[in-house]
């Protein structure tokens, strides 16, 4: 599926550029975006390594398993098939906390660790996503977050009279989309 999405982006882009006469602009764009990707990766390397380091400390000190113990009812409700004391619970819990607090790239290392743990649970189905993986991913993109700090910063940068006015309605919308996401995952898991 990802193969198709990726090809469609590139092919339709090139065809449309050829029709609208944007080819020159695009040739520039291709090179700039490759360069931007590496700039992004350099920044990511620092931030993700830092969070991975702190995550390791939290993991070895028992902090993550302590927190996932507290969140057990919720985790068990969302992922009924993960064994109760499996390490995947700890990583999922850490990832949700990073998401809710809006810690940005702290979400990536925790999310990838969670995926690896889920993969171990699922070793018989080699290249197919499990229900848990799908649910975890969908919940991740519904992005429940308490305070959208970046958005507030952008809004004040662009002269909003009330940059923080986005907090309450933002919370309402992400709460609603997260609830819908949970229901959707439930239905999809039941169906398959």
């Amino acid at each position: 599926m990802l193969n198709y999405v990726w090809s469609i982006l590139i092919l339709t882009g090139i065809v449309i550029a050829a029709i609208t006469g944007n080819i020159e602009n695009m040739s520039q764009g291709i090179l700039t975006s490759a360069k931007d990707a590496v700039d992004l990766l350099i920044l990511m390397a620092g931030v993700i390594s830092m969070w991975s380091g702190f995550l390791k400390i939290a993991e070895e000190s028992g902090l993550t398993s302590y927190l996932s113990e507290k969140m057990k009812p919720l985790l068990h409700f969302l992922f009924p098939n993960i064994p109760r004391n499996h390490i995947a619970n700890d990583y999922i819990c850490a990832n949700f906390i990073a998401n809710i607090l809006g810690l940005g790239w702290a979400c990536t290392p925790t999310g990838l660790q969670a995926m690896k743990a889920l993969k171990q649970l699922e070793c018989e189905r080699q290249d197919t996503a499990s229900d848990e993986m799908c649910t975890f991913l969908i919940l991740n993109i519904s992005s429940l977050q308490l305070i959208p700090m970046n958005m507030i910063a952008y809004r004040s940068q662009y002269g909003s009279p009330a940059p923080m006015a986005v907090i309450a309605p933002g919370l309402i919308t992400t709460a609603l989309t997260t609830i819908i996401a949970i229901i959707l995952c439930r239905i999809m898991c039941k169906r398959s």
Binding site: M1, L2, T128, A129, L137, N140, L176
Partner: peptide, 26 residues
């Protein structure tokens, strides 16, 4: 505020564990 990068997340999370069949995620 309420959406996250769908394809970006899928491609990072799933390729890191060699998942090819993404089922109903997309």
């Amino acid at each position: 505020c309420c959406t996250e990068t769908l394809f970006y997340t899928i491609s990072i999370y799933f390729t890191s564990v060699q998942i090819k069949k993404t089922r109903w995620v997309i």
